[in-house]
Amino acid sequence: MDRIAFDIAHLLAGGLLLVSFMMIYQDRMFSLLRVFAFHAVVLSLSVAWQAYNQNAPHLYITAAIALIFKAIIIPGALRRIVLQLDIHREVENVVGIGVTMLAGIGLSALSIVLMLRVTNTADAFAREDMAFALSVVLLGLLMMVTRRNAVSQIVGFMSLENGMILAAAGAKGMPLVVEISVAFSVLVAFIVIGVFLFRIRERFDSVDVNVMDRHRGDQR
């Protein structure tokens, strides 16, 4: 295998992880959305590089979907939602950013140690990609857990999905079905989310999940 090809794949996947960390410490909604768009761009480059190296043209479609939907349309739409619904422009965290960053570092270390240990039969491309992908997935989860606001939870979910796509692209020769379905599920998820947000707006003044929590059915 080409040494430089491997290095570039490594760089891009590592870059994705780095951008995931950037998302964790954003405290403004709009900058979070911008960083998320950047996340999608890095993903799309990474997937395109995999497509080139694996000689798998169908992966270019996945890269294009990542670029068009996730880097342009979705951040734009979420931005509109934030503007139109007049949601808090600050990202509210459940715990402090420092603690979250430390937890994130721990999760990345864990996933890299874990994946490198279990994938020693797979080829190096897939190994590195899977290790980074799992870290991105876990960071996405962490973001969903530590954010109060519905919009930033969505961003957390999307970054988690980006990690999935990185993993799917890294698994050499994974059938087209899955890539399209991943991209498709993102789309569907987005529609659902859109519907949700607009429905929620009819009833709530805020898209803050904390406010929703007060309306639980089983509480006295």
Partner: peptide, 11 residues
């Protein structure tokens, strides 16, 4: 049903 509870549950 789009009540508060239903939306919370669905979310």
């Amino acid at each position: 049903y789009r009540t508060h509870e239903a939306l919370e549950a669905a979310w």
